[in-house]
Structure formats: structure tokens, C-alpha cells
Amino acid sequence: MADRHILHASDVTIEYPAHSVSAAHTAVRGVTLTVAPGEIVGLVGSSGSGKSTLAQVASGQAAVRTGNDGSPRVVGGSLEVLGYEMRGLKRRKLAEFTLGVGYVAQDAGSRLTSNMTVAELVAEPLFLRDKRFDRNEAGLRAATLVDALLLPVGTMLKQPHELSSGQRQRVAVARGLILDPVLLIADEPTAGVDVSVRGAVIDVIAGLQRSRGASALIVSHDLESLRRAVDRVAVIHEGVVVGLGTMDEVFDDPRHPYVASLAAELHDHEELHADDHEVEDDEDDEFEDDRFEDDYDIEDAAAGENGIAGGVAGDGDDAR
């Protein structure tokens, strides 16, 4: 199985067990889904549909929180990721599993360590894996990702509180990509990002993963952005997959009322943009020419006056 699929869900059911005053709740019901090597798959659905639950379990994040009785767990079927069976995955296997799986939460931007610079935040995973990682190489990798995600190179010197919510989320995406994961699971990676740059962020995720021969599962409500980037899309509604295939296969001939409603929204949105090519400025999330507001280039930002990534390399675990 592992040689044919990066992710393979077979009739998988995921449940939130009874906790405190809450009864048990089944969030995902009999889902079957695959992600092949090098494939980019989109996962869409309304709030509460089960898409984020599936992302948490597939990424191993739910297993990290096994001490929390309210964490979701696989109770039926099989969910295999990189050859690891997620049903009953032991904590001692998690470190090994997460070497190949990256995860970006929908609120990842709000969780960034407040007293670290962007350079340190993006590069930190490299040093958590290898404390002796070359700091100049780490700085260059971080600066390249920051630039690719349409952030000013000068952002490398800033701390999270100096950025907009959309910029913080893009920093979190860069952090999720820097370890070159075999599979990146991104849950609403453009949450808080200005509408005019969301498509470009999705494009970067898909493009980088494809160039590495790696895969991605992208949870997003932005159908227009997904259309440009994904190979296939799965639509989940009330815990059940109600549409699966290429964007054209799913939305040109919808077979479920919820898919039909999404298809109508997508069609209306595309018609609107066909008539209006003007892009409105967003004061909260500057992106248009802000990458070039500084007088130094990527190599300068990577090195900095004293080596931007040096704080991470020098402090090791203390940087967290």
C-alpha cells in the first residue's frame, strides 16, 4: 500500500469520544480517499463537515493529544499515511511519522512564538531536527520561502505582532514547508490572507510539492484557488464524501445538492471576475509591491547583519 499511496483512507470513520458533558460524536463517516505520490488533492466542505477532523487525524496531530479525552480517533475502517496505520498509532511512532508529514493548522498564524523573528520561526524546524544544521543554509531556505509566499524580504527581521494576520499565516505556511515534507496537510492555509493573494499562496504550496515529487492535502473553502492548483478535489458534507474527482468532473456535473450549491457559487464567482479584473488594495494585508520595499535581496536577508538564523542555531531548544 505504501508504495502506491501516500495517504489511503478506506471506509474510515472518526469519532470524538464522550467527554465531560458532551456525548460521543461521529465527525467522519465511511470516507474513502487516496492521495498518490506527487498528487495535490483539495478537500472542501462547510464548517463542521469533518474536513478539519480528517486533516488532524491524518497529520498525527490528534495522536499528539492522546492525553485529551476529547481528541478525535479512528473507530472504523483504515487510515494509512506514509505506510503508518493511524488507527491506534502509538506515541513512540509519532516522531518517526512526523519526519515525513507537515501540518499547517487553520489558526497556525496565531500560534507563532511571539518573541522570535520570522527568520527564526521559519528556520526553527530545521534546528529542532538537526541542531548542527548550517545556519546560512537555513537562512537562505527561510528567505526563499518567505519571498515565494509574497512577503517582503524585510519581514525576516520582524516579530509576529508586527505583521497582519494574513502575513502571520503565510509565515506558518513557510514553516510547514521548510522540511520538504513528503506529504503536507494544510488546513485552510490562506485563513486571514487577503483574497487577492490567496490563489498565489495555494499555487506556491502546490508548485513546491510537485517540484519535489511530494504530495499535499489542502483543506480550503476557496474553490477558485483550488481549481488552479489541485489534481483532484473531494467534497465532504456531514462527514461523508459527496463528490470526488477533478474539479471539472465534480462541479460541471454535480450529483449531490450540496455539490450543486458549491458549483453555482463557483460559476457566479468566475463570471464576476471575468467582468472585473481590478484588484482592490487591502490595508491590513500588504502584498502587492511590499516584497520590494527593502533595499536588500534574499541573500542579504538570509545572512543579516549578524546572521538572522543564528539565534535559532545558537540557542537550540531555548529558541522555542
Rank of each mutant, 00 (worst) to 15 (best):
L184C: 05
V195G: 01
A174K: 01
L226W: 00
V230A: 05
G176W: 06
G213A: 06
R170D: 11
S225V: 04
G199L: 08
S215F: 06
Q209W: 08
L183E: 11
R212P: 00
V182C: 07
A214F: 14
L184W: 03
L223H: 00
L223V: 06
I178Y: 00
R175T: 12
L177W: 02
R175H: 10
A172Q: 05
D222L: 04
V219F: 10
G192A: 07
D194G: 14
L217E: 04
T190S: 15
L217M: 14
S220P: 05
V233D: 03
E224M: 04
V173N: 07
A206S: 09
V230T: 11
V230C: 07
R175G: 03
V195A: 15
L223N: 00
D203G: 15
D231E: 07
V230F: 05
I202Y: 13
A229W: 05
D187F: 10
V219A: 11
S215D: 00
V219M: 02
S220C: 10
R170E: 13
A216G: 03
T190G: 12
E188K: 02
P189E: 07
G192K: 07
R210K: 14
S220D: 04
V204I: 02
S215C: 04
R198K: 14
A206F: 10
R227V: 11
Q209H: 10
D231N: 11
L226D: 00
D203W: 07
V197P: 01
D194K: 11
V195F: 08
G199M: 13
L226F: 12
S211T: 11
P181L: 00
R232G: 08
I218M: 00
L177P: 11
L208V: 14
R170F: 11
D222M: 00
I205H: 04
L184T: 05
V171S: 06
V204G: 02
L208D: 01
R170V: 12
E224I: 14
L223F: 13
R228M: 05
D203M: 10
I218P: 10
D203K: 14
I202H: 15
V173Y: 01
